[in-house]
Design a protein around this nucleic acid. Structure first.
Lengths: 131, 131
DNA sequence: AGCAGTAATGTAATGTTATTACATCAATTG
DNA sequence: CAATTGATGTAATAACATTACATTACTGCT
């Protein structure tokens, strides 16, 4: 998917996430952007929907929070399954991709004739520094 | 972990989940149990916390909902990583376990010196019937 | 320029999920 | 039986997300 030109609100939300150390909730983003004219949650959620669609942002289901995609390159092609380690101590989130896991999940879902649309893999624990 | 004797509220919540076709939200459980004297969300959440701890119930992060564990036997030992396919059509949830994925995740987290506490794997899509 | 159609935005209200705080009751034990 | 601990009851509030509707901005066409 080619990354389209972002709108004003999308750009603001993307910048907020990019400059953040870790994941942010929609309401945290909202608060960060009040100075830029944001007033309501929907402004954030609408921007996030698009950014998720473009693959520039990921949603962390177990945190109800969002992070900028850590892949440096553009988002023109799908990166397959994305997985995360999430440190309970410092909040650090590390994104990774693994072909072997992807293959294995594919085999398993295929065996049930299940058509995968989105895969969530989130590992909660403690990072090296916080262990 | 040995499964302890369940309290009244825990039993009610467990029964509600066991007899349900699919996952239920905490508030749906609450509504089902009003006739049995439930009045407040906390009664449900407290019971769920224990049932999760005992491994008798799983939380589906991507749905904010809960399902009874499908393992038939008691819950005295850990089953390692649990994964789910979740059909967007009919809501059917299938629990599965795979040693290969577990091993691979273990290798990957070990490489970052990450100490895993809980792993979430949820695959959204469509089941054979709903494809 | 004028117009129509579409995408983006603004705002309010509401719906859904989860937790905090505090009081009470019940079972166990020394 | 006092003391502790675990379970429960209740109210209030916090946190996360969506619906509905009005308005504005952009695009393409004549």
């Amino acid at each position: 998917m080619a990354t389209p030109q972002l709108t004003k609100n999308q750009t603001l939300v993307m910048d907020a996430l990019s400059h953040s150390e870790g994941p942010m909730s929609a309401y945290t983003i909202l608060d960060k952007l009040r100075d830029h004219g944001f007033r309501a949650p929907l402004q954030v959620y609408r921007a996030l929907d698009k950014l998720l669609e473009y693959g520039m942002v990921h949603r962390l289901e177990s945190l109800n929070a969002f992070v900028a995609c850590s892949c440096p390159h553009d988002h023109e092609h799908d990166h397959g399954v994305t997985a995360f380690t999430i440190c309970e101590g410092c909040g650090q989130v590390t994104e990774f991709h693994d072909e072997a896991i992807e293959q294995r999940l594919s085999t398993l879902t295929r065996a049930q004739n299940f058509k995968t649309e989105k895969t969530t893999i989130e590992i909660r624990g403690h990072c090296q520094s916080c262990a």
